[in-house]
Nucleic acid binder design. Sequence first.
RNA 1: GCUGAUGUAGCUCAGUGGUAGAGCACUCCCUUGGUAAGGGAGAGGUCAUGGGUUCAAGCCCCAUCAUCAGCUCCA
Length: 676
Amino acid sequence: MSEQIKIHLPDGSIREVPSGTTPLDIATSISPRLAAVVVVARIKALHAAAPASTTDETTSEDAMYAAHDAAAEKIVDLRHPLTEDVSLELLKETDPDALKVLRHSAAHVMATAITELYPEVKLGHGPATDSGFFYDIYREKPFTPDDLSAIEQRMADVVQRDEPFLRSYEPREQALADYAEHGEFMKQHFIEKFTQPGEEVSLYKNGAFTDFCRGPHVPSTGRVKAYKVTTIAGAYWLGDEKNPQLQRVYGTAFYNQKDLDAHFKHLEEIKARDHRVLGKQLDLFSIQELAGSGLIFWHPNGAIIRKTMEDWMRDECLRRGYDLVVTPHVMRRELWQISGHEGFYGQNMYAPMELDDAEYRLKPMNCPGHILIYKNSPKSYRDLPVRYAELGNVYRYERSGTMHGLLRVRGFTQDDAHIFCTPAQIEDEVVACVEFAEEVLHKFGFNEFKVELSTWDPNDAKHYVGDPKDWELAVNGLKTALNRKNIPYKEIPGEAAFYGPKIDVKLVDVLGRLWQLSTVQFDFNLPRRFELEYTGEDGEKHQPVMVHRALFGSVERFFGVLIEHYAGAFPLWLAPIQIGLVPISEKHTAYAETVKKELEAIGLRVTLDARNEKMNAKIRDLTLQKVPFVLIMGDKEAEAKAVSVRTRGKGDEGSTPLADFLARAKNLLETKAATL
RNA sequence: GCUGAUGUAGCUCAGUGGUAGAGCACUCCCUUGGUAAGGGAGAGGUCAUGGGUUCAAGCCCCAUCAUCAGCUCCA
């Protein structure tokens, strides 16, 4: 151990220390105060060979456990002995990586509490998540809310004891035997999966609690200062619904109470933006138990927004060279057999219904309908590309537990289009679709998005139609288009539609959440299945290819995301009530009526609150309805033909001539401004 | 579909086996007001649905439906 190693610190200094020195030693040597606040260390080997990448095809489960070890840069315990030249960064509580470590440690603290309270449980795994941590527990009896608070209280004891997290190693066979003896089938599985025979396995021990774990951890349980056990939910062992279900106990943790409070405040904010909550408050839509779950009723306030969105979309399609079509909701079963939907998508379709001697099925997609229109008359290469667009209502069977407000429903409207073109035209058409998608997102106030390219999984070929050569061609077509637009994208194998690969545009909302909406898909299969043709320049018959695209994706889902993005405070052009009029007393109502007429004349939706109420009450009610402009008028305004303007989010702006306000509103309306 | 929780007035929610409650919203009356709630009165409920236990069920038990948090699956 007399060998010296060099430690490079972030300030550029280099320390020469004996091998085996720990980050904690170094922190202490810098300053004892630093040692007290430091939590973990980030190190990077300076000369070592690149870490051996065991295999490229890691499952998500592998990745979950391998993440730390695979990275050239890694996070280690403060007690981790350093044995080679490294760059070392001591992480304080404020580092995001340090927070992850804390949460992982909090999961151990929770597991400690749980095993103390309920010795009969078997442990699964307990990782940190984006917003906290969980631990999967197997126990015959479900945990009750009382159990959760008992667990939380016991955690306080564990924290109080301030037990150090100590790493140790044990022969694999020994660990396996120990776990087998206690019936810890999940731990056995993890050891078998993540370690090799003959290896030593890594264990972490705090007090009497030991867990198979790669770490790293904070120095001791006392560091877990602010935490909460939040909820419990079922989770399948290894994510497979054929396996037994575990109880996943969720919690979250922070280094201090202030951050924990802020976290819950943030959750409150998210809840206040919840489209289901706002949908009720603003009377936008409802779901009726009598009608069935996953089916949306658009109330007047929601329907007027929808109309505005749809009008814009139709106009935009026409402007971009699409033709509008409308196709039926139910079509004969044979059609769905030919298209392949019955075979590849049947699980998601409503059951067939019998009418006369034929069977019909509700449409889950619009493509076959558009194909029939294409086939209805012969096409020449001069006609291509043919672009059919429809706001088509589709119905898909979703399992009962999966519905979620407007975001996951059984009946919805797709702004669907199918482009029939020659192979040579694909690239231009795909580029045009992606540009159109960008325009849609910008128009509705979303400025950030991410692009994914979903390809097939050749190992799972039975879920897809077509042969590998075509798939490769199609994927390359989409890639070329994306590259031409210089759009960065992430490739995701196994996520393609059954008939072809797709480009998914995921938008990022104002809270940074990702939503899957727009999609552009390539399809060579349906043209083949329906024997589509066009006559080429050479007079011969050729087969067109198809591009499917939906930009809102689902009008329902897009609307749901829009509600959350704007927190219900829609820009003027979309707001159901655009202007609220408040006469100060009843004697000003007549003047308000004349103002209302003038505003309506330029196409504004106006509400006049003529109730027998004080103006403050009226202002409050209109404000809670998130009306963009509230115009208040009394004697002064009536005399001067003016209005007193109250702008949403800004408040009182004082009196202004009515003509000026009309010009301002007109401008916002005509430009469809994304804010106010 | 699975695990757990929840379902009471239009909305938000109290109500631990003995005559269904509050606030807001609604209707009427009084009040006629300068930038987020004026005062009073009234009306409104097969306690999700269907069974069961009990002298007695909103409350306890079973089933179904729906919602919520997850899991799984997807626009």
